[in-house]
Amino acid sequence: MRDRYSRKTLIWEVLLLLLAIAFCLPLYLLVSISLKPPQELFTSPLTFPTDLHFENFSRAWQARNSGGMASAMISSVIITVGSVATLIVIGSLSAYAIARRPGKLSATLYTLFVIGIIVPFQLTVLPLFVLFRSLGLIGTYLGMIILWVGILTPLTVFLYTGFVRTIPRDYEEAARMDGAGLVRTYVQVVFPLLRPITGTVAILTGLFIWNDFFASLIFLGGSGRETLPVAIYSFVGEYLTQWNLVFAAVVIALAPLLVFFLIAQKQMIRGFSGGIRG
């Protein structure tokens, strides 16, 4: 047999390594700048910091703008967790009904949801803002959660429907034969089988909501309940030259996401590749 490590393999490896480095570069810059003293920022922005200024993080955390980082973190967590949890409940239930009850109604609903994915959010901002204002939902957590659930339900239903269709009906039929009602069947049998796609949905929608700037600025601006991206943005005005603090704030905002990613990673990959194994 010929040596399996051929020249072609080597070229592939080098290319992929370069690609990986390219992807890591922004992260490196983010972290390294967040650890630099302000002077070093402009003299040598790309080098590794000479000494590590961890106090940047505490300074960023304690800065008092738009209610401060701590309050922004709380807002972000409440809005993201609340929205994602609601999305999972509503999305999986709707998708289950659509996938398991064939007929005109299901097909129509499904089409509607797909259209909902396509319509750009920006188009709907103005009417939504007017509507939310008259309902008194501007600047509230509930308003934001309703907004996100509305925007992301189509995508959630789309993802869940595709996955439910890959689950053999046998599980539900077995539960039915075993005398389980609809609720017990859903809660104890179907929903656990959806775990991989639930992970995917949680990560996709969670990222989207956590990182959003535009909608949060419009619907929460000036309320004191701004989310992290808005709070960090207001940093830029206040500490115009202190990019190291801005970067430190971004790192802080990223941290919860990274932790969540590490936990849910395995689920997500299974969700993307689809299917389940008994």
Partner: peptide
């Protein structure tokens, strides 16, 4: 009569054991 009320048990070809 609903399947669950018939008091009949079924073994499926692929067993349909709940994986979780």
């Amino acid at each position: 009569v609903e399947p669950g009320k018939r008091d009949i048990a079924m073994v499926f070809q692929n067993y349909a054991l709940y994986p979780h």
